[in-house]
Design a protein around this nucleic acid. Structure first.
Lengths: 126, 126
DNA sequence: TGAACATATGAATATATGTTCATATTTTAG
DNA sequence: CTAAAATATGAACATATATTCATATGTTCA
């Protein structure tokens, strides 16, 4: 097999199911959207950040220092991760004096979380 | 600041909100669960895999070759990614002669997908 | 059985990313 | 203003991972 990356040279120069591929392509969200979607999930896809998100989900808001204590990594590491979460808009923050409090940005975060947990638990018992 | 990783030495040797941390910790799912959750999202967190998942979501089932054509990467790369998706149980497969068809494993995948998309689109218009 | 096709897999490489260390920035207290 | 506390950030390092190339495995058909 040729292993080229152009569409026409796959599957021995013909599609097995060309219509299927075309149909899927026709209805596809644009590349950028799917890329952004992957980026969002990538942010969820780290155990440190998952713990942070869980803590914020449960406690509503927490300061950086408490998050570091909870997750049990350095303040610096938490801060770096909070930046990632901030950029992905999964988290928002508010300064109160010297302390900065973080909180979940919206309810989607919670729902994505819950679906993920369901997936795990249902698979385990199955 | 000391930057140690033991709980008691954070925030200048005291917690700012020790009760908060303890409360969150008390209700936390076990480490393994949160780790597994992160692993699931990690699998979602790649644009190639997102495209594959989207295609399977839309077309119900597809063979490896068509997926390679659709995503526009090599057959080998798709195959490697399908293995990752398989291991995470996001995808199931069925051999029909020479051709192997892949499909989404369950409905959570779809719901996680949709929540993710909502997050993106709502943020964009906001 | 052997050739051709569809898929899977191992090794290698390049790139991305999480953590730490050191240090900068911001804010309050004195 | 200065010191100290809370947080943020840059550089470096280690690790993870996505892709490709080469090749193996499994399947059908002549």
């Amino acid at each position: 097999m040729k292993n080229k990356t152009t569409d026409c040279d796959r599957c021995d120069d013909i599609f097995i199911h060309e219509e299927v591929v075309n149909e899927v392509r026709k209805n596809m969200p644009n590349e950028e959207t799917l890329y952004d979607l992957a980026e969002i999930f990538k942010v969820f896809g780290d155990s440190t950040r998952v713990k942070i998100l869980y803590a914020l989900f449960f406690a509503k808001k927490m300061c950086v220092c408490d998050l570091a204590a909870f997750v049990n990594i350095s303040q610096s590491a938490v801060s770096h991760q909070l930046r990632v979460l901030k950029q992905a808009r999964l988290v928002k923050y508010k300064r109160e004096g010297r302390v900065v409090y973080y909180a979940l940005d919206d309810e989607h975060v919670q729902q994505i979380f819950e679906q993920g947990l369901k997936h795990i638990t249902e698979k385990k018992q199955g």
